[in-house]
Amino acid sequence: MIKRLLSYFYPVKIFSQKSALSQTLEITWSNGDLVMDSLNTNYSYGSLQRILKLGLKNIGFAKIKQMQHILVLGVAGGSVIKTLVDEIEFKGKITAVEIDSEIIKIANRFFKLNEIPQLEIVIADAFEFVLKTTEKYDLIIVDIFQDTKMPNFLFESFFIDRICLLLKNKGNILFNTMLLNEADNLRNKKLIADFKKQSFAIKTIPRVEQHNELIIIEKLI
């Protein structure tokens, strides 16, 4: 309790662990809340939760609440899952894919993800998972980072075409991206242009929490 109170004045780190895939992982009290951080960025809760919650609001909480199956690619501490369950009161199934098993152990310990009954966590590479799954999803949330970097495969046509195929009609994709330089800007512009050629509605929310751009996609047919 004392550490939580002190966190309103300055961040209080309570846990740190090295991970082969994510390098440094830290749990910190910040402004009265627990957050998960990597070496250079927020991984869960804190600013990241605000970013993804804004994207979900743009899709529509009422629409999401009526969905049946949501796929989350990139779990970390599971802040977007907590938003879905606690704030939106989503009752359907959530499948969450995370490549780093150490992150899930930490998330279970500090954020109690293992106590969410409708949540299935799959330890796997997101690219391999979307190749193999035969499920269809109402909402696919893409939130995959290695510290401040995003894997290249996320922006390759094959991956994009595949997640679009997994989307139900009128379903949505919420894609969280980070813009740190001009190359990142051009990358996002190309992705957006590719979607505009297809049967999708697409909008962006730029400069969320300074460096993030949300891309929100709806499958029209």
Rank of each mutant, 00 (worst) to 15 (best):
G55F: 08
E213D: 11
F61S: 09
N176C: 06
F145L: 12
I121H: 07
D86L: 10
K149F: 11
V130N: 03
I123C: 02
A96K: 07
K18Y: 07
M36A: 14
L191Y: 01
N152S: 13
G78L: 12
K3W: 06
T41C: 12
M178Q: 04
F175T: 08
N176Y: 02
E89A: 10
I173Y: 06
L180S: 08
Y137P: 00
E213Y: 00
I2H: 08
D125S: 02
I163D: 08
K65G: 11
I205Y: 08
S16V: 07
T134F: 01
D194G: 08
I202V: 15
E120W: 00
D184F: 09
F15V: 01
E128M: 10
D37A: 12
F15R: 02
K149I: 07
L6Y: 14
N169K: 15
P151I: 04
S22I: 00
S47M: 06
P117K: 12
K53R: 13
I216W: 02
N58V: 02
L167Q: 03
I2V: 13
F145S: 09
L113Q: 05
S199Q: 15
F200P: 02
M36E: 10
C164V: 00
I103H: 12
G55K: 07
R207F: 11
K136A: 09
E156M: 05
I104K: 08
I64R: 01
L48G: 01
Q66D: 14
K170H: 09
K112H: 14
I192D: 01
P206G: 05
P151L: 04
F61H: 12
D143R: 05
L131I: 09
L191F: 14
G171R: 11
K112E: 07
L179Y: 03
Q23P: 00
Q118N: 14
G46K: 06
F153K: 07
I64G: 09
F195A: 04
L56Q: 03
M1G: 14
K132F: 03
L131G: 03
K189Y: 07
I106Y: 12
V208E: 10
L48A: 09
N212G: 06
V85R: 10
N181F: 07
V122Y: 01
N172W: 12
L139H: 10
R162P: 00
I144E: 13
L166D: 01
D143I: 03
T28A: 00
K112N: 13
L39R: 15
N172Y: 14
A62W: 02
T148R: 15
I94D: 09
F195H: 09
K190M: 08
